[in-house]
């Protein structure tokens, strides 16, 4: 019995793949789409099936891809067989995939624009936040002043003052940069101060005993000490950074992934809107994976950090 269930489980993604292909065949037969329009979707399905075959040894592959195929089938069935009247609001996946392939240049351009803005905002927030945190780590009174203020400000979502920033700053781009940087600045500041505070007192004392000057104390002791914690802060803040980026782009930018979604939703082109969702999901996951990899490379000495 158990064996039979197991075999069924293993076969499920293949069966669903065949069902999806069959559905595509029906759509072709009915003449809703021609062969060229359906090609990207077929390619995607075949690619997914190839991954299933390649990673068949892992137990969870079958489950994951069963869910993905299942979602695609339900989505396709709902959008193209049951509810054709609202298909502009709820476009079938084959159209979304086709748009992804067709619009690839614009999408890549948007991704680059988003990344540039994100990177600048992030860098600005990190440089300012870490610098101030290091000063706070050095000066107790400054720290007591800054921490309550930072607590209050980190609670306030930066998007709140976005409309005002748009009015005050000379360009949308600068306003977006300000919103992103200020939204990241406070949490980074707090987390860095906390990680500096957790430093072992004896380390500081021995550094003092070596008669280090203030510069060396900050740059050689405090900064290296808080680097691993800083990385954790980055990975925590990256999702909020994307949130701010999208918010800023929705506000009125003229480039970027968020703009792509907003622009197309203004024209009620929901096929492109959903394509934009997928692009952002993939993008954010890639960035997260990249950061993870970087962390493991750069901070090899912190073994405990990798496990979560």
């Amino acid at each position: 019995m158990r064996r039979a269930l197991n075999i069924l489980y293993k076969l499920l993604p293949h069966a669903l793949f065949l069902a999806l292909m069959g559905m595509m065949g029906v759509i072709l037969q009915r003449g809703d789409r021609d062969w060229a329009a359906l090609r990207p979707m077929l390619a995607l399905a075949v690619l997914m099936e190839a991954i299933v075959l390649l990673r068949a040894k892992r137990w969870e592959t079958a489950g994951i891809f069963s869910i993905l195929f299942g979602v695609l089938i339900l989505w396709q069935a709902y959008a193209s067989f049951m509810n054709t009247s609202v298909s502009f609001l709820f476009p079938p996946p084959d159209k979304v995939v086709a748009v992804l392939v067709k619009d690839i240049r614009l999408i890549l351009h948007s991704i680059l624009a988003s990344f540039w803005l994100l990177l600048l905002g992030f860098a600005l927030a990190v440089v300012l936040g870490v610098a101030l945190a290091l000063l706070c780590g050095y000066n107790r009174r400054l720290q007591n002043l800054v921490v309550p203020i930072a607590d209050v400000f980190s609670a306030i979502p930066a998007l709140v003052y976005a409309p005002y920033a748009v009015a005050v700053f000379p360009s949308f781009w600068l306003a977006a940069l300000f919103v992103i940087a200020s939204g990241l600045f406070w949490p980074i500041l707090i987390n860095t101060i906390q990680s500096i505070n957790s430093i072992d007192r004896t380390l500081l004392d021995s550094a003092r005993a070596l008669d280090l000057n203030r510069r060396d104390m900050i740059l050689r002791i405090l900064l290296p000490y808080c680097t691993p914690g800083l990385f954790n802060t980055f990975t925590m803040q990256i999702s909020s950074a994307f949130m701010l980026l999208i918010g800023a782009e929705l506000m009125g930018m003229t480039s970027g992934v968020g703009w792509y979604v907003k622009y197309n939703s203004d024209f009620s082109n929901y096929t492109k809107v959903i394509a934009g969702f997928i692009v952002i999901g993939v993008l954010v996951s890639l960035v997260n994976a990249g950061l993870d990899l970087l962390k493991r490379r750069l901070l090899m000495w912190t073994n405990m950090e990798g496990r979560a």
Partner: peptide, 27 residues
Amino acid sequence: RAKKILLPIVKVLTPIPPLIYTPYLIV
């Protein structure tokens, strides 16, 4: 088992900023 299957999917869905759904969900 549910964890093994769902975790990779959830990990992709989690970091998508929900802000982006706003224009679509409003409609």
